[in-house]
Amino acid sequence: MGQRRRHDPDRGSEPPAVTTTQPPAPDDPSVPPPAAAQGVTPLRVKAAPRPGTWISAVIVALLVLGLVSFLVTNPVLEWGTVATYLLDVKVIQGVGWTLLLTLLSMVLGTVVALTAAIMRRSDNPVLRGVSWAYIFVFRGIPVYTQLVFWGLFTVIVPKIVVGVPFGPELLSFSTRDLLTAFWAAVIGLGLNEGAYLAEIIRSGLNSVDKGQTEASKALGMSNGRILRRIIVPQAMRVIVPPLGNETIGMLKTTSLVLAVPFTLDLTFATNGIANKLFTPIPLLIVAALWYLAITSVLMVGQHYLERHFGRGFDARTPARGGGRRSRQAAVNSAGTTPQNPLPEVEL
């Protein structure tokens, strides 16, 4: 046993003499372990030989080099054309429309999803049922099919009439004037996205401890305020990371809006140029570079959102579960309380 420990570099670097002198810190997991006591010389350690690490690194590096040289030297990729069209007006406009489509459809999707998620939690069976049916339909039909449908919406529903059911008409307008291809694309993408986000948001809302609702109720807060002020802000911490993923997914899904047809987005713009020049490959690279660039910007935004909604939580996470158990162990060992200090602990 002792022999094995001496050969183990991880354990050997931390002599037992140092660990036993550390004072216990049961209630504060955020405190870093104290530095080695003064006068203690750490063991001098030589790392174990790891030939596999070096061999695999060389192989992978060679493969990457080969790929880079292929990308640079392959004439079919036409990097000159890529450079010419990377900042073309049509391409930049396409980037703008793609961004606008992404953001608007995500906003619509989030609003719809939050509504659907709250309806799913409702006591009202009608609201629960409608929410379930919405998720079932819009998650179950391919987004391409849905986009074609929204493109044909003005044919299916030419006129919208506001009035008393079976009574007089108050307002009537033609859908053709309202539902342009752009808005049809936003609604199509947004409603599809909402069905996915609804499940994400629902699990986020469910992740908030029930005690939060009880404490808010005990303060006399109304259900709406509890949701808005207490539950949703805490759920956001859980919701934002998958929401970021969904936004990046949406960025790429916008390339399907030609189904509507909406013809100004990045993919359609680069395809149009490619068809004119008979050079599809460099313009695919142009589109790919722009999608990557936008994704990078979105990732930065996600980072800040996560930081905003994570405030107050960071130090808490390690204290949960394990922290409470060790605290209980400390209580028991201290022996200052009755035999059974927690007869009615909620589990």
Binding site: Q212, A218, G220, Q234, R237, G312, E346
Partner: peptide
């Protein structure tokens, strides 16, 4: 409204962590 006149303190605090 009735609850708002009664203060309650819980075993596990239930402070709003955010």
């Amino acid at each position: 409204v009735q609850r708002s006149r009664i203060g309650m303190v819980f075993q596990r605090f239930h402070l709003f962590p955010h």
